[in-house]
């Protein structure tokens, strides 16, 4: 393969030039159309696939399952059926814990959710016990300023009669009282 020379970016690549409206400015005998609306709606039958089906069936039973990459031995949750690192099918299912560890977090002070969450609230990346990739979750039952790296959490689930094949079965995550995981043990995940 030949080496490629660095590409020089053209001037003004990131600037937005003024819109030239001269073509339509000449139309004087009709009022210009500012906006049209073309409604379009499609209904799809979503197929979760084999791996996600197994995950969703497990979560219906208050279980978390991941799948292991045959090459790197990393455990993925939620599994998609294929390891993104090796490109190989992740055929081995792994039963995971229901607790996890904070590997990143942010304190949200803006109401993105239309009052669904009282602000401020904490979004976190949580490394579920036994897995190698963190999942996203809400942290509650702790003051936002007290959330930190390595904080141990338990998953808080909806009532048994409300359980469905949905990630929403986990309402939020809350401190489980265990000592923090040292940052050195989380080096691969932060």
């Amino acid at each position: 393969m030949s080496d490629s020379a660095p590409i020089e970016l053209p001037e003004g690549l990131w600037s937005q030039p003024a819109v030239d409206t001269s073509a339509v400015d000449s139309i004087t005998d009709v009022e210009s159309v500012q906006l049209i609306t073309t409604p379009a709606k499609f209904v799809y039958d979503y197929t979760p696939g084999v791996a996600r089906t197994r995950f969703l069936r497990a979560i219906e039973q208050k279980r978390l399952v991941g799948q292991r990459c045959p090459e790197t031995q990393k455990v993925y949750i939620p599994p998609a059926g294929v390891s993104p690192v090796s490109g190989l099918p992740t055929l081995e299912e792994v039963e995971l814990g229901l607790d996890g560890t904070v590997v990143s977090y942010c304190i949200v002070n803006l109401d993105f959710t239309g009052n669904a969450q009282e602000i401020p609230y904490v979004s976190a990346l949580i490394l579920v016990d036994g897995s190698d990739i963190p999942i996203y979750g809400l942290v509650r039952e702790i003051a936002p300023e007290d959330v930190h790296f390595g904080l141990r959490l338990k998953s808080v689930w909806v009532e048994p009669e409300e359980m469905t094949t949905s990630f929403e079965n986990i309402k939020w995550w809350a401190p489980n009282g265990e000592p923090d995981v040292p940052k050195s043990e989380l080096a691969d995940y932060v």
Partner: peptide, 29 residues
């Protein structure tokens, strides 16, 4: 293919072609 998601549908096809070529799966330019 109602039991498979898209990556589950295409992964075996990609890997069959890669194996047939004899080129390592990390070695495509």
């Amino acid at each position: 293919a109602s039991t498979l998601n898209e990556v589950e549908l295409i992964q075996p096809v990609i890997h069959e072609a890669i194996e047939q070529s004899g080129i390592g799966r990390h070695d495509f330019d």
